[in-house]
């Protein structure tokens, strides 16, 4: 646990030592703010629906961008060798990196709370439960995409390749829900279960079902496991 904290701490420090984190947070806030305020006052509804619908789209590109360097950069500049020759378990390293990426995404999400404050000050009859579950869904989705991004980052030492692979995998899981019309009846259930969007929409509706939570957690676990294996295998090559 201690080592995870050290890796996490270094990574966060490194985010904020470079312009990376600031650029990410500012752009995230501007993009989400633009789309939110554009329609919020037109609809005249006291909810954050628009924000919650739009953030997954921003996630599609932002999370692979945040996570692309997490491991690929270590491979590229060679610090992976320093890390691998320290008494540090691969899982501690990967989980530390994952949490660092996740923290940055959560900070971005926190920045959108300004819209929540707007809502509270101008809106009436606000459904706080739905807002809470909406944020919960976005947090889980963010964590899932981060674990995918980190896996993409571990398979290459080129950050651009990591970004493209990350966006691709994230898109696959995101689009699955939209392909249902074309899928044969027999596998519709499976595809739907694998689709990120399906589970997210359940949670954002305010239904916190253990099946959805388990889906997200197992996706995160699966990709973190894949990342650890990818790094371990390299030693044996």
């Amino acid at each position: 646990m201690f080592n995870i904290r050290i890796v996490l701490g270094r990574e966060i420090q490194s985010f904020f030592n470079s312009p990376m984190a600031y650029i990410f947070l500012v752009i995230f806030a501007i993009v989400s703010g633009y789309f939110f305020t554009n329609t919020f006052f037109l609809f005249g509804q006291s909810d954050l629906r628009v924000l919650f619908d739009m953030i997954p789209l921003v996630y599609l590109f932002f999370i692979p961008a945040v996570s692309m360097g997490l491991i690929a950069r270590e491979n590229n500049i060679g610090t992976m060798e320093t890390i691998s020759t320290m008494p540090l378990n691969t899982y501690e390293f990967v989980i530390g990196k994952f949490l660092a990426g996740f923290c940055l995404i959560m900070l971005g999400l926190l920045a959108t709370s300004i819209h929540f404050i707007t809502l509270v000050s101008v809106g009436t009859n606000i459904d706080y439960g739905a807002i809470f579950s909406g944020y919960l869904g976005l947090a889980l989705m963010g964590a899932t995409f981060t674990s995918i991004g980190i896996y993409a980052s571990s398979v290459t030492e080129n950050q651009v390749v990591a970004f493209i692979v990350g966006v691709f995998i994230v898109l696959v899981f995101y689009m699955l829900d939209k392909t249902l019309v074309f899928a044969p009846q027999s596998i519709v259930g499976i595809i739907q279960f694998l689709a990120v969007d399906y589970h997210l929409s359940n949670i954002s509706r305010g239904v916190i079902d253990s099946r959805n939570i388990i889906y997200f957690l197992s996706m995160i676990g699966f990709f973190i496991y894949l990342t650890i294996q990818t790094l371990e295998v390299r030693r044996w090559k």
Partner: peptide, 13 residues
């Protein structure tokens, strides 16, 4: 204690 060949460092730190 190990000093790798290319002496990789986290240059932003």
């Amino acid at each position: 204690g190990y000093l790798p060949e290319l002496n990789p460092l986290y240059t932003e730190m």
